[in-house]
């Protein structure tokens, strides 16, 4: 464990808890893409298949349970909660899951480190996580209004992966055998996807104006 990875995990944890708290407190999911939340639940499910088979550390197991629990809770709130579901904008949140899931699945079947079920699922979860934010970014551009909690959520989500890249650089230099190019590429693609959002987020923060994404 290094400071970059810990900071990344904490940033990731805060981002999902901020979102869960927002939905639970104001009983609204306005501006939140259910599609993205469902994709994240799928990311955690396919990535943490080793939850009960390989024990790495208490921290690792606890964090996996928190991420799984929070992502499924968020999906449950938006789908099932009698008040929250009313604020879900299903006409705007129309990104097709399979446009994202299928290419990631095909890519994982083609490009992986080992052709085993767990390894292909793990690789699939890396590719999926890189693009899972797309429905949320599309929704933000369509609705054009970004309440600052949603803006913070997306920002923290991007920041966590950027911190992970620093973690991979650190591990690359401190653990000689540690080279995992698939992780690198998926992580860099993911962070680049956030780059333009970061740009507009900082612009709005610097000029102290409401965050607006160009149409």
């Amino acid at each position: 464990m290094n400071i970059f990875r810990l900071a990344g995990d904490m940033t990731h944890l805060v981002s999902v808890l901020v979102l869960l708290l927002k939905i639970h407190t104001i009983k609204s999911c306005a501006g939140i893409s259910l599609k993205t939340q469902e994709l994240y639940a799928l990311v955690f499910t396919t990535r943490y298949l080793d939850l009960f088979t390989d024990y790495i550390s208490l921290y690792n197991t606890v964090m996996k349970l928190i991420f799984l629990g929070s992502s499924f809770s968020i999906v449950w709130y938006i789908r099932r909660h009698k008040i929250v579901r009313r604020s879900y904008d299903k006409d705007q949140d129309t990104f097709r899951h399979y446009f994202i899931v299928l290419p990631c699945l095909v890519l994982a079947l083609l490009i992986h480190h080992k052709f085993t079920f767990k390894e292909v699922m793990w690789t699939f979860s890396l590719y999926l996580e890189a693009v899972a934010i797309l429905p949320q970014l599309v929704l933000l551009q369509r609705t054009r209004n970004i309440d600052n909690l949603t803006g913070q959520y997306v920002f923290l989500l991007g920041a966590y992966r950027a911190l992970y890249i620093l973690n991979w650089i650190y591990r690359h230099y401190t653990e000689p055998h540690y080279v995992h190019w698939i992780t690198w590429i998926a992580g860099i693609v993911q962070t680049l996807l956030y780059a333009d959002f970061f740009y507009y987020y900082f612009q709005s923060w610097k000029n102290n104006v409401k965050l607006q994404l160009p149409a």
Binding site: R5, D9, H12, D50, D54, I56, N60, M63, K64, F67, H113, W122, Y164, N167, W168, R171, H177, Y178, V179, H180, T183
Partner: peptide, 10 residues
């Protein structure tokens, strides 16, 4: 080492 690379990460 037990864990293959980056499988010990979240």
């Amino acid at each position: 080492k037990g864990q293959p690379q980056s499988h010990d990460e979240l």
